[in-house]
Write a protein that binds this DNA or RNA. Structure first.
Lengths: 297, 297
DNA sequence: CACCACTTATGCGAGTATAGAATCAATTCT
DNA sequence: AGAATTGATTCTATACTCGCATAAGTGGTG
């Protein structure tokens, strides 16, 4: 059963404009084409939809009954299709992004500002979650894109490096180590370290890197979120080793940020997407934008 | 903007069945054709609707969003079209018929019974009205067909003769004229005649026919409907000259029906339709049936 | 009544599109 | 590694649709 949409559209336009020639002009085809399309449709259906002489065009009884249906059909189709073309050509549409909290307050705002300029009206739904959750959200399709940490490589995931940032030492100004220009890991033996929960991707990564170099850290306290850790440091509870971007420059007076060397350990931030899956144009545009931003910094 | 319905249908079926080959079988085309239809649609839209490898076929984000719309579109169209094909091939559907009351109780029942046998499920809406109203109903499109009296010929109306019936004399058995085998018009001079309203098409026709022959009738009473006239005759109020079919044979014991001759005047019953307008298949089938019934009687 | 203005229908030629057969290529299962 | 499955591609033949030019039908007009 091969359905003739052109014929239905021809019928609707001819009926609405009351003539083949007018309809032809409106559809940017010749009158000949319309005559034939309607003839073909009528032949296919086996009934007449329009009674026409060279003087009048008017609906038959069946045509009058069919017209409203035909109108909604044509309307629905053209509306749906033109919406899709809009989605395609101008990257219109919304999408969902999963992102770890530090990056949500660090890198995302700038990217979102730029995106809003080039794609006004598009909304980004943000899932801020832990590194693992970001990974799962992308994997299971809850989010088209994810910003997080590198994971054990998964066949269905594609990671693209956005940036690397060093781990830094954070303490209050009153702390004995606060004067040093830089700190080595062995300085930390007896510090009151505020660690991150061993369940976090961050912590696992850090432990792994340190273990490779024979370093072992034992924290006095343990929290789940980097922002909590910063809070505790500020409150004088202890010191912490955290990614540089945990704290914006100058955000908290009284806190010191000191480079950690020998070795300098950096964590990678990647953008995640499912392999072999096509991004929506809206998400794709964002992806390109973030890569561009990362490359130019 | 040329819209590719086949492509949309291909998309829906492939998405629903989860594979090109299965979908191809379902649509009775080759897998090649479907691959191309979808490619063409995607190229036209400028975006990918299905991510496919040789192993999996799955929706993209955009495709998932579009699928429900596409499904309703395809559903609506195929439903509407197949309904129309049904209307065409099996004359399914309802129509409206205008009919004068005598014929509605006389000739129509048989026609409707036969129609119901060949077209079960079809409904006929009947407008029972005067001869003039029947004509107007057809002319203005309230009814596709009309059964009534011949009118002054109108360019837009086409009349086909169904039957002719003589005017008869009706009286009670006690009436002095009831013994006669036939009655001539001059017998009626002093009868108490129950006439039909001068506004009715029936009366106008009868007066015209009689006037041509120099006969003039003066009624004592005047009513609007033939059935009322019969009632009055039965009640002994008077006698009446009415078309033969006003009373079914043997319907009212005690009433006599006597032929009127010198001359015998007959009224014609015609079926009316608008000229140059196409009947719906349902109405057309009824039209043929009625003509056939008239021809064979 | 012939002619005119206007509208739809048709014959014809050409360019395009679409379908199918065979084959290829990628992927998974054994 | 090989077989089996499945979507993509190439090639070719057919069918389709379009547009041009023109015919044919219809209502109005002198």
């Amino acid at each position: 059963m091969k359905i003739d949409f052109d014929g239905i559209q021809a019928f609707v336009v001819i009926a609405e404009l009351g003539g083949f020639s007018k309809a032809a002009e409106h559809l940017h085809v010749t009158q000949t084409a319309l005559t034939r399309r309607l003839q073909k449709l009528e032949a296919y259906l086996g009934l007449r939809l329009l009674d026409r002489t060279t003087r009048y065009v008017e609906l038959t009884v069946v045509g009058r009954e069919f017209l409203p249906q035909a109108q909604t059909i044509v309307g629905d189709v053209t509306r749906a299709v033109s919406r899709l073309k809009d989605v395609s050509s101008r990257s219109r549409g919304n999408f969902t992004l999963a992102c770890i909290p530090t990056m949500a307050s660090q890198m995302l705002p700038k990217a979102m500002r730029r995106y809003a300029e080039t794609h006004p009206g598009n909304r980004i739904r943000i899932i801020d979650a832990s590194g693992f959750e970001v990974r799962d959200a992308v994997l299971h399709g809850q989010a088209e894109l994810g910003i997080g940490l590198p994971t054990e490589s998964h066949v269905e995931l594609e990671e693209t490096l956005l940036l690397e940032e060093p781990y830094m030492f954070f303490c209050r100004e009153e702390h004995p180590l606060s004067r040093k220009k830089q700190i080595v890991w062995s300085d930390l033996h007896e510090a009151e370290l505020i660690g991150i929960s061993t369940m976090s991707a961050n912590r696992i990564f850090l432990d792994y890197q340190l273990a490779k170099r024979g370093i072992k850290l034992s924290g006095t306290y343990e929290v789940r979120h980097l922002s909590t850790a910063i809070g505790l440091v500020a409150a004088g509870v202890g010191v912490a080793i955290l990614p540089n971007s945990t704290l914006e420059e100058g955000a908290r007076p009284g806190l010191c940020r000191i480079p950690l060397t020998s070795p300098t350990i950096k964590r990678k931030i990647v953008i995640l997407r499912k392999r072999n899956s096509t991004l929506s144009p809206a998400a794709s545009a964002f992806f390109d934008l973030v890569l561009d931003q990362a490359g130019s910094s």
